[in-house]
Design a binder for these strands. Structure first.
Lengths: 255, 255
DNA sequence: TTCTGTTTTTGAACACGTTCAACAAGTGCA
DNA sequence: TGCACTTGTTGAACGTGTTCAAAAACAGAA
């Protein structure tokens, strides 16, 4: 499974197809593990491709045989990040029914699981910030990873006792995903001890978000809700034609 | 004046002090002008420092004498961008009284004046996205530039006939600046012809924003307003201790 | 005018991301 | 088993951002 996932988030064009796990997969995995470890220890800029190749026991050219660029090594982080996060928050999602508690659980665990990577989080953002990059959260290449995250948000809402405006229901996972992106962005910039400021921000903003969701069915808010839905549509246009709303509660795609 | 401004946004540690304009200032300016021109023509990545130095008629080392890095050349763009924007929107701000129209004027002119630089806008964002970079919009080095922008937003509100909740009044320029940042972020990713999608988004979101501002004095919204104000406080903490709210309507600092 | 100190200029060299021709190892078929 | 093709490996070389010791130019005082 982990092999399968890494393969999926690896360089799309490169080797490591669906064939049997073999020497190539081992090499690829070794390179990724080494890279992520060195990134954590020395930071992204402080880690050279030569160091990665050397410590992984391969040549510099071999590293590039598997990964298109140094930046693509970061892509391995995304898939792993989602997997770790899911493991960490699944219990809470099975026991909590209150929307705010569910949301808090997801947000807290996201930051907690990401914490070991805070050292190179700035580089994550810088890399993701390039609109032309396949690593951009809005890129079509990131679609699978993004879908996982929005489906998790759909679970947050679906398993809760909250009353959501029907107009909003389909778009809410995407809006919550954007909210999560905002939190992560704040976390990246947060240099307080243990990223305490981020957790405080989560508490504050989760309140606002849940209040807004609860208000969404009021007649007074109807026009605003409609516009928020349109806004997500505009933002989705950035990601190209495959970026459809997640039907709430639908069975996960096998991808 | 232009020299003064460029000097201010140049490398803080470098040469080009407050002394009389001389050969050094000419060299610096030539490098900047050349760089911005080549960035527009060839894109940021497609422009090498050697090309900039060569076309500016200086050596590669000389370019680095004046600018700490290639990225610092981008900083010249920020100050210019604000100046051009101000010129473009000042008429509307003197004639319009409706908050929405004022806001639309500011947003539209921002995108219009930025349009010639759309070619390397992605790089702007990528550069600004590095939390450790002095070019980050949240950095203390960007404080002067950011202040200009928030003061412009204060003018938008101050000269309008809108009724703003007193709690919100001081923070509103910062919140509107964040809104502007979001629009620019969308613009950077927008590859539609003439960035039509961005203008459409402006129309849609300005509506929402103005509605929210108008709703802000309702009792029902009071708790949300208070939280929004706290949120801006949290975000301001990222920029360090100098980032204070702009007292609404106050005279511009001479900086 | 000369001297001293400061500022500006220079370009070879360095570091690092990346490329690619050549080679080695693996695979499948006759 | 041999051959042709595919996959995996290698490291010198390239391009580009950047550095820094040396030289040139400038400025002010005696």
């Amino acid at each position: 499974m982990t092999d399968e996932q890494t393969g999926q988030t690896g360089a799309g064009v490169g080797p490591g197809g669906p064939a049997k796990p073999k020497k190539a997969d081992l090499t690829r995995r070794t390179i990724v593990e080494t890279a992520l470890r060195l990134f954590r220890e020395h930071g992204y800029e402080g880690t050279t491709m030569r160091a990665i190749a050397s410590e992984a026991g391969v040549s510099i050219g071999n590293a590039y045989y598997y990964f298109e660029s140094k930046e693509h090594l970061i892509q391995a982080y995304y898939g792993r990040s989602n997997a770790e996060h899911l493991v960490a928050c699944v219990d809470a999602l099975e026991t909590e029914r209150d929307l705010k508690q569910r949301l808090l659980a997801v947000l807290y665990t996201k930051i907690e699981t990401a914490q070991p990577y805070h050292r190179f989080a700035g580089q994550l953002f810088k890399t993701a910030a390039d609109p032309a990059s396949p690593l951009s959260p809005f890129s079509s290449e990131s679609m699978p990873t993004r879908r996982e995250a929005t489906e998790l948000m759909a679970l947050v809402v679906e398993g809760s006792d909250a009353r959501v405006s029907p107009e909003l229901a389909d778009e809410l996972p995407n809006l919550l995903w954007l909210y999560l992106m905002g939190i992560i962005l704040f976390w990246i910039h947060d240099d307080s001890a243990g990223c305490a400021r981020t957790f405080k921000l989560i508490d504050r903003t989760a309140d606002i978000v849940v209040n807004l969701i609860n208000l969404s069915s009021l007649t007074l808010m109807r026009p605003l809700v409609r516009r928020a839905v349109q806004l997500t549509g505009e933002l989705r246009a950035l990601a190209g034609p495959g970026a459809e709303p997640v039907p709430g509660g639908q069975e996960r795609s096998s991808e």
